[in-house]
């Protein structure tokens, strides 16, 4: 019953999920200030459906239900949605996310399920409304009203080659239209610092993400004169959200410190490259999806050599990938 070691630290999955929730709370509250009560309803519905689908899966497959993790996944997916999203989209997206996490959660970042509204139901579904227009919580879908309410996000303006009319400070603080969680880079940064101090995430992925994005900006987007324009690219489009809360998803990221740096930098580089290719808000999600495919490989490549053994014995580490063949 009691297994060595007989002492444990005060930590549990619930406490970790609670910490992440506390870190995101300022950003969610800010979205309520900007858009009214609707974003909070979106987030709550997503969390509820996340827990619901997790429980259903646990009953079907009789494997343990990780309800806090699933609710958190639902919430993280909802953070990438625009505030005026159709309520009926949320269960679909959360269902795909929970399914991804359960079956291929090791190599696919389940938050990539948030790509579904961007690719399958484009257009009005992903339109953002102007900042500080209150959206009523009762409206299930803003499909008809979108023409009057919609506004261009700073990222859309950047993609078309112009500079957004909101100042860089405004975008950093969160006064520009964006997805629910991605609006205020400042609040996300504060939440991310809180998580790093509480040792929920390590600094490697966020620093890698932002550093990789700035690097690609410098080589591909920099026009030689305006050094401060990288702030527009960083704060618009959810890079902060992806860096602190999206790419740090436990199940699909490497475990080693070097591996996490590579993962973060890869995500940052890919995000800016995808933006060059034309993907706007979904570039962050796409880059997270692509890098998570390599998480196990990066793990094995960056694993340190054991205590006392200089050679890394790479071949032996990769041996652990092989499936167990039945002995004859």
């Amino acid at each position: 019953m009691y297994k060595s070691p007989y002492l444990r630290g005060v930590t549990s999955e619930l406490l970790v999920s609670l910490d992440i929730f506390i870190a995101v709370l300022p950003a969610i509250i800010w979205s309520a200030i900007v858009y009214g009560a609707r974003p909070i309803a979106v987030v709550l519905i997503a969390m509820l459906f996340g827990a619901l689908f997790e429980v259903i899966y646990a009953i079907i497959f009789r494997k343990g239900a990780k309800i806090p993790t699933a609710a958190l996944l639902g919430m993280t997916v909802a953070l990438f949605m625009p505030a005026g999203i159709n309520y009926l989209m949320i269960p679909i997206v959360v269902f795909i996310a929970v399914t991804l996490r359960r079956f291929i959660g090791g190599v696919v970042n389940p938050i990539a399920a948030a790509l579904v509204p961007f690719f399958i139901f484009t257009g009005m579904m992903t339109a953002h409304t102007a900042a500080f227009t209150k959206l009523s919580i009762g409206t299930v879908s803003y499909w008809d009203q979108m023409r009057e309410l919609s506004a261009k996000t700073p990222l859309d303006v950047l993609m078309s080659g112009n500079i957004p009319e909101e100042s860089a400070l405004d975008i950093f603080l969160g006064n520009a239209p964006e997805a629910i969680g991605a609006m205020s880079a400042m609040l996300l940064l504060l939440g991310g610092i809180y998580l790093i101090c509480r040792k929920v995430i390590t600094w490697q992925i966020p620093v890698g993400f932002l550093g990789g994005a700035i690097l690609v900006w410098f080589f591909l987007y920099f026009d030689g004169a305006h050094y401060e324009y990288f702030i527009y690219h960083l704060c618009a489009g959810g890079i902060f959200l992806g860096a602190f809360f999206g790419a740090t998803e436990y199940s699909s990221t490497p475990v080693t410190p070097t591996g996490r740096l590579i993962h973060g930098a890869g995500c940052g580089v890919l995000t800016m490259l995808f933006r060059k290719l034309g993907f706007a808000a979904e570039s962050v999600l796409l880059s997270m999806l692509v890098m998570s495919l390599f998480s196990r490989v990066i793990d094995m490549l960056t694993a340190e050599s054991y205590f006392g053994y200089r050679s890394k014995k790479l071949a032996k580490r990769f041996e652990t990938f092989l499936p167990d063949f039945k002995k004859k």
């Binding site: 009691y2 444990r8 930590t11 970790v16 343990g64 475990v255 080693t256």
Partner: peptide, 19 residues
């Protein structure tokens, strides 16, 4: 009070063991 009863265990890949 000091002994920890082991219950349901599942790795969440947080990386604290590696650190």
């Amino acid at each position: 009070k000091y002994l920890h009863k082991s219950g349901h265990s599942a790795c969440i890949r947080c990386g604290k063991c590696v650190a």
